[in-house]
Design a protein around this nucleic acid. Structure first.
Length: 437
DNA sequence: ATTAGGG
DNA sequence: CCCTAAT
């Protein structure tokens, strides 16, 4: 008994897989532990991933079903499919001392299944050669680097110690019905059809992208982020705090004037800015913190195809004010600088966004000019109404820094100052950086 | 790389 | 917000 335990432990410590062969335990050596890692190495590119061969591919070709212990075992289906049951990814199948996760262990099991299959068919020289052909064909297929390297294939094929990888006693007995001749025929035909280069369909572009999306969660930082990510880096907590503080100083106490139809947004919604619930009206306090921003956009970074159109972030009043501040300081056309200095804590705003927002602000101010003339007294109904003071500042800045450069939209050479210029009382809050008086 | 302009 | 041309 002790000896048996010791024996087991000894082999457990080594790179052995425990297999049952004809009812008795046998250690199936994984001598080439290094080479086994070839199977575990993740493909470096998504393209490779798309072309990777999976165990299922083999099982389909062989008419075999590879099942794991996780699923309920149906003996009949086993008999029908001549299935192989894999050992549960337990600690026994793992080499001790290695830090493999359970997933890796499972991959090992899958690998073992493939090995078992191959070994099982290597009874005759014909089968062996067929198997070799199959593997060589697979290796070179499509010019893609499959995880199957030459050495491991040879190892598999030459390893006749592994006959069966089975932990199910009943299955072992049922499997005894196997008829060598029938098996040989089936194997031969299957292998032949396999070696006819069953082409793996080249994954569609969309498939690759979607796969990359899901896969890239595990591969953070492996791929060089797109250029947009340049704006993702939150410079420093101090700086962002500084900015936030400044912004808070600028935030008007009373926001009742800056939105008539502001739908109620629950706090839970605000805590999940990923949802980007479209909200009309400015919410100065929905300004996510720097860490929140990071989280939001890191999730956006994860998905390369993060569709900002579908997850539009409303411009908050504080953001608009910051933008106006930045333009007042740096002028128009220096969006990157504004972005760097004032929007470092809001990574979802690109310099182009700033410019676009400024264009919209100009448009908005022009609308109000028309209103002031009384020609079109259309309140900006659907859009978020801006505080008059803000529009005033936009107007002033538009005169100082005309944008677009050449043909300024409304130079408004002090011809007819808009209403909100006259109503100086409407200035309900203080513009911190620059005073226009 | 950044900006302007149009969609 | 995106795309593209221009700088």
């Amino acid at each position: 008994m002790d000896q048996e335990v010791h024996f087991c432990q000894k082999f457990t410590n080594m790179n052995y897989h425990w297999v049952k062969m004809e009812g008795s335990f046998l250690p199936a050596p994984l001598n080439e532990s290094n080479e086994v890692d070839h199977f575990l190495v993740e493909p470096k590119s998504d393209h490779e991933l798309g072309n990777c061969l999976r165990v299922q591919d083999f099982s389909r070709d062989f008419g075999y079903e590879i099942q794991t212990n996780d699923a309920e075992v149906d003996e009949n289906s086993f008999r029908q499919n001549r299935g192989l049951q894999l050992g549960k990814p337990s600690s026994e199948s793992k080499s001790q001392g290695s830090s493999r996760s359970d997933t890796d262990a499972f991959e090992i099991s899958e690998l073992s299944a493939t090995m078992v299959m191959e070994a099982e068919f290597n009874n005759t020289p014909v089968e062996r050669s067929l198997t070799r052909e199959l593997f060589s064909g697979l290796r070179t297929r499509g010019g893609c680097a499959t995880p199957f390297e030459g050495n491991i294939c040879d190892t598999i094929l030459d390893n006749n110690n592994i006959h069966k990888f089975n932990t199910n006693e009943n299955y072992l007995e049922n499997e005894k019905i196997s008829d060598e001749n029938v098996k040989g025929d089936i194997v031969a035909s299957k292998l032949a059809s396999c070696s006819r280069e069953r082409r793996l369909r080249k994954p569609t572009r969309r498939y690759i992208e979607e796969f990359a999306d899901s896969k890239s969660e595990n591969n953070k930082g492996r791929r060089k982020p797109p250029t947009k990510d340049k704006y993702l880096k939150v410079t420093s907590t101090e700086e962002s705090n500084h900015i936030r503080h400044k912004v808070q100083m600028l935030t008007p106490k009373d926001e009742s004037h800056c939105g008539t139809s502001v739908p109620v947004q629950s706090r839970s919604q605000r805590r999940h800015p990923e949802k980007h619930v479209p909200v009309s009206g400015f919410l100065s306090e929905d300004e996510p913190s720097a860490t929140e921003c990071k989280n939001v956009y890191s999730s956006a970074k994860i998905c390369k195809k993060y569709d900002r159109r579908k997850h539009q972030k409303m411009w908050t009043l504080t953001e608009v004010m910051r933008l106006v501040d930045g333009i007042a300081e740096y002028g128009t056309g220096r969006w990157t600088r504004i972005k760097r200095h004032l929007f470092a804590s809001s990574p979802h705003r690109t310099p182009i966004d700033l410019r676009d927002k400024w264009r919209n602000l100009l448009k908005a101010s022009c609308v109000n000019i028309q209103n002031s003339k009384g020609t079109e007294c259309k309140q900006p109904h659907a859009s978020r109404p801006l505080p008059k003071s803000l529009l005033q500042r936009v107007y002033e800045l538009a005169n100082i820094y005309p944008y677009p450069k050449e043909r300024s939209p409304k130079p408004v050479r002090e011809a007819t100052p808009p209403m909100y210029l006259i109503e100086s009382n409407s200035l309900s809050f203080n513009w911190g950086r620059k005073k226009y008086e």
